[in-house]
Each structure stands twice: as structure tokens, then as C-alpha cells.
Design a protein around this nucleic acid. Structure first.
Lengths: 201, 201, 201, 201
DNA sequence: GATGAATGAGCTTTCATTCAT
DNA sequence: TATGAATGAAAGCTCATTCAT
């Protein structure tokens, strides 16, 4: 009994991962369910016994991985301790790690952001995600501003700038996945918060 | 003779603009030639007398507008004079103007960047565009670094950061088109170059 | 042993009744085996342990109930005694009772009659049923004609008229199931045999 | 211009007739659009440029022929003149002609009547048709009753009986199309109105 | 050159049937 | 025996492209 449930779970994951891969590369319309099935190594009827429709599979391919990273954006204070500067540095490390290794998810997210009217439910979800993040680091930025670490000015401007920046990196340099490349951008991300110089400079 | 040529040119533009609008909102696959024809106010078959195929129309919809803005990214020194700081400020003004008003083009560009294998010719073209820009402002950044305006470090890192940033803004806040919103981001863009503070702060 | 056999019999009946209900309402094609299973309260695969195929289930759903009523059409003389007029009145009572309460069976029969080439075996069976009925009351009608009760003319014409009439009522007023409605048609059925007036008129 | 419109009209009729033929024989679900196309001698994409969907084609296949016969059922008084008896005889002649030659339409109608919930719009239309007919001959029957031609009793009972009768003939003896067969039933139809004998008897 | 009817490949989705458990 | 996951044939429908007018 246990084994059967596990097997089902496993097969579902197989399909979902195939979907994530293909959707992210080819987009919703040009991804064919037959291709997903082949990639997952199942017959294509099977895809429909695990996911109700092509649309439902797309939603799952975005929302389920989103859950895995949600906490690192919406509960920043829970994950990173220390003074505001340390928190931001740790957060940037974490986010850069996510953005550099999760290209597929970010591409999927971008597909949705680029077509709000086509995917209204998903768009709303992702829009909420963005807003939650901005809210989530608001007080940290304010504290950092008081301590003189960060630029004065609207915390949400800074938060939005930061998010746009890492998102922009991901989308503009789509082929770069190597860590050293991403490593270099961390200092730039930090500079959106305040006038930081690398110690060795 | 002249008039007829003009009329043809005009009809072609009608179709191309309709294509830009619809492709940018709906993507390549979900944009139907019939919809483009209707939006352009021409008959269905006419689209095919001006553009060889759906693919060709897509390429034109991206490459032709790209030409209009190319110069502002690849010949920065020709457009903006003064010391490096002034040049960068003017360039940011110009680019923000372009990015805020040309949402459609940026969305189209993103569609291509997100799917290199699907649109290899276009991708190569756009990849070259990015690299040209980075090269183009290299010497300006170096000069600014010498003058102490800008952060030390790889000029291309700074250039790439900047491009990613404005692109990220465009893509993350897809619905914002109002100028005031974009205005606020200019200072953040500048901060990727060096530790700047608004005068009123 | 006995109990197990009974249980099987019972489960089979459960499935068959569900099939009769759904086939009659939705027709052969639009009735899904999964729906039959759900209606019967058994699991999906179980249907196939009792009936070889969807086709076999359909045949059973028609032929088995048909057996229950066959005798009242093919052995009229055995069931109704008296002079021809009384026999016909009793027969009409009986048939109206059957047609008014067995809507499902009549709908199934009609599905077959309407598509001889699709269900050749079933059609032949039902066609034989009709002919048997016509033969079966032939002598009664002849006798009634001799006694002056019934119209002169071909007995089979009268028999066919009668059968068509009750069948037509059933099919034309598909929603009427109330007995009073059917009661009114009895006198009309009788009038196909001879010029009868209700006593109260 | 005229020619083109005519050609389109002609092709539409080709498709509609093929649909009528196949739908009536095979029913809605088992009729494949590909078969209709083949029967009509067009490619199957063409079917969809004349009719929006399989459903729409089905509705047209029923409602358009229905219009052709509607008047003979809903405007009985306009078509048949004379005393009530003559009107009824003429009407029966007309209706028998229609029912014997229009098997396909009657089969289609029956498909709808048998599945009200599947074809609600069509069912409503046809139900209205039946009621209109019953209303339409009401006064003629009443007049015939006053003149002593017809049985006393509810005119709508008689009207419904008559309609059920010819419908029942059509459906019970699906294969008979020869006129002589139908001719014999006319006297039986008339006997539902009153106690008539053929002159030669 | 402009039109839009005709075509048919290719897609998503359904569901009877099979079969391992 | 009972189950329900897996399969894949088959269907409706879309739409880029062709081409006769």
C-alpha cells in the first residue's frame, strides 16, 4: 500500500519535472503534452491521469516549485539573522543561489509576468509574491537606513530595484549558469542598497 | 508611382504595427495571422503578400523597431556629450524613456532571449546587441573610474548590471507605464555605477 | 456457496440496472463505463468482470428486460381471456401499464430500431418481437371482426397501427409518466380496432 | 459575384445534406465530421468553415428542414380548406407524404426527443412544434365534433393521438418507405378522429 | 495586388480495454 | 475476484499556408 502510493508520487514527480523542463524552454503553447510524456517516459494518456489538463500541469509546474522558494522571499527575517547589512548580504547569497540554479522556474515565472491576461490566476499569485517580498524586507531596510548602512529613500523602491536586478540578470544572461558569473553580481546587488565597496578594493 | 509606393509602405506599416502589438501581448504561437489582419484592418491574405510567413513577420516585428533604438545603445558616445557622469545620466534618461514607452519591443526581445533555440537568428542578433552595448560604454566607464566617479571593478560587470537592471524593471513591473514610476528608478540605475545620492537628500 | 452466488447475482443486477438507466438517457456512445460503475457503486474494473465489453452490456441491458415483457406481447391469448373485445381491452391495460412505467426499456428499444445497421443482432431480435406480436393477435382480431366489434380490413394493419400508436405516445411525450395521462390514451388505442365510445359519452 | 455566392450556398447545402443523412443514420456521437466531409466530397476543414462546430451542424441539420415542414403543422387552416372532415383528410395526406419521404428528419427529431437534457435548445424547439400543432387543429376538431364527424372528448387528446400515431409508424417501421405501406395507415389515422369506414368496405 | 475559401497536419483530450497487484 | 493505473487509438477543432478568382 505504502509502496503503491510512493510509486504514484514518484511518477507524478517524473511528469512534473519533465513539464517544468519543457515548459520553461518552449513556453506553454509550443510544449506538446506528447513531448512531456516522452520526456517523462510515460505514455501520454498517463499525463492526463495525473494532471487534469495541459493548463493544470502548467500551473503545477510553476506553483509547486514556487512554494519551495517562497519562504526565502516572504520570511526574510526568519532565515537570516544579524544586523541589517548582514541580513541583506545573507539574503543576496541565498537569492543568487536560487536564481542561478533555478533558471527553469524563473523562466516560467517570466512567461506568466509577460502575459497577465493569458494566465490571470498565476499572474495574481506571482504579483502577490513580489509584493510580499517588498513588504517583507521593508523594516529591515528602514533599520539599515537608520544605522547609516543604506541609502535614504523609499524602502520599496530599493526592494523593487533589487528584485528587478536579480530577475533582470537571470533573463538577460539566460545562458550563464556558472557560479563565478553570478558571484560577481552580488556586489552590484548590494550597491542598490547602499554605497558598498569590496574590502579588497 | 510615388503615391502607390507610399501606399504600399503604409499598408506594410499597418500590418507590422498590428503584429508588434499582438505578438508582444500574446507571444508567437498564440498570435493568429487572422487576428493581425483584423487588427491591421486588412484582409487575411494581404498579410502574406507583405510578409512571406508568420516567422518572417515575427522577425520583422522585432528587428525593425530594434534598428530605431540600436544607436542609443551601440553609439553611446555619439549621442551624449560631457564628462562620464553627465554622459551616464543622459544615457539613463534616454534609456528609461525608451524602456518605459517601448514596452512592446522589450517584451518581444524577452520572448527571444528566453528561447534561444527556437529563434536562433534573432537570438544571435539580440545577443550581439547586448555585447555591443557593453563594449560601447566600456571606455566611458573606465574614464569615470579614473575620475573617481564610479566604482572600481570590471566595466563590463557594471554595464551588464545596468542593462539587466532596466530590463528587469521592465519585466518585473510589466503593468507600470507611468513616467513617475520609472523616474524613481533612475537614481537606482545610477547607483550601479557609483555611490550617488540625490541632491535633495 | 449459495450466498456467494447470490451476491454475484446481486452485483450483476446492480450493474445492469445502472447500465439500463444510463444507456436509456444518454445512448450508447455517450454512456461511459466509468459512469455506469459509479452509478452502480462498484469499481471501474468490476464492470468488465461481469460483462465482456461495453457492447455486451448494452445487449444485456436491452434483451434481459425484454424477456420480462415478451410474453405479454407474444402470448396475448394466454394472458387475457374472454371475448375479443375484452381481450383487447385487457391487453391495452397491460401494455399501457408497461409502456408508462418502462420508459427506459422503450427508449433503449427505440435506439436500436433507429439504427438497424449499428445493432444488427439487436435489431433482428426486436424486429422479430414486433412481427411476433402482430402474428399473435391476428386471430383475435379476425374473430373480433367476425363478431362485428372491429373494423374490417387487414388484421396486421390494425396490429401494427396499435403498436405504433403506443410506441408513438411513449416517444412523443417522453416526459409524461403520470398515469392519468396514459389513461386517456387507452380509449384512443381501442379506437384503432373499432368505433368505440366511452360509456359516459 | 453572384456566382461565388451561389457556389458557397451550394457547398453549404452539400455539407448539410451529408450531415442530415449521416446524423439520422448514426446519431450525433457516432457521426464523425470526417465522414460528413467525405460524404459531401469536401475536405473536413471545410465543414468547419461553414458550420461552427459539430453541434451547430447538428442543429442546422434539424432546424432547417424543420422550417420547410413547419407550416403544414402549425398553419393547418391555411393549407387545407373545406369542412373539418375534408381538412383532416387532406392534412393526413400531406403529413403521411411528409413522414414517408422525410425519414431522415423524423429520425433526427426522435433523437432529440429521446434526450431532452442533451439537446435542450432543440428539445424546446421541437416541444414547441408539437404544442403548436395541437393548438393549431384544436378549433377544427371542435367544429368537426359539433358536426358529428369526430368523437367527442378533448381535442388535444385527439391531436396528440394523431401525432403520436404517425410518429410511431415512422419509428416502428423504420425500413418501410414504400408509399403503398403508408397509404394503408391513412385510414387508421383518420379513425383516431372518428369512426370512419373506407367507402369500398 | 488583394481576397478569403479550401486544405490537412497537428494538437489536446477522452475512454474502452488490458493487466499487474 | 476486485481494483484502478496505464495505454493509445480516435475524435473535434485550429490555423498557417496555398491558390483560384
Amino acid at each position: 500500500m505504502k509502496t503503491m502510493k510512493d510509486k504514484k508520487e514518484q511518477k507524478r514527480a517524473l511528469i512534473l519535472n519533465a513539464a517544468i523542463k519543457l515548459y520553461s524552454v518552449n513556453g506553454f503553447e509550443e510544449t506538446k503534452i506528447a513531448d512531456v510524456a516522452k520526456e517523462a517516459g510515460v505514455s501520454f494518456g498517463t499525463v492526463f491521469s495525473y494532471f487534469e489538463s495541459k493548463n493544470a500541469l502548467y500551473e503545477a509546474a510553476i506553483l509547486e516549485p514556487l512554494e519551495e522558494i517562497r519562504s526565502y522571499f516572504e520570511n526574510v527575517e526568519d532565515h537570516f539573522q544579524g544586523d541589517p547589512l548582514d541580513v541583506m548580504k545573507a539574503m543576496i547569497d541565498c537569492h543568487v543561489e536560487i536564481f542561478s540554479t533555478r533558471k527553469e522556474l524563473l523562466l516560467l515565472i517570466q512567461q506568466v509576468l509577460a502575459r497577465p491576461s493569458r494566465f490571470p490566476n498565476l499572474f495574481e499569485e506571482l504579483d502577490g509574491f513580489v509584493n510580499s517580498f517588498v513588504d517583507s524586507i521593508n523594516s529591515i531596510i528602514e533599520e539599515g537606513q537608520k544605522l547609516g548602512y543604506f541609502y535614504k529613500g523609499s524602502p520599496s523602491l530599493i526592494a523593487e530595484s533589487y528584485l528587478s536586478f536579480i530577475n533582470g540578470i537571470r533573463l538577460t544572461f539566460i545562458d550563464d549558469e556558472t557560479n563565478p558569473v553570478w558571484e560577481r553580481f552580488k556586489i552590484q546587488a548590494l550597491r542598490l542598497f547602499g554605497p558598498f565597496y569590496k574590502s579588497e578594493e
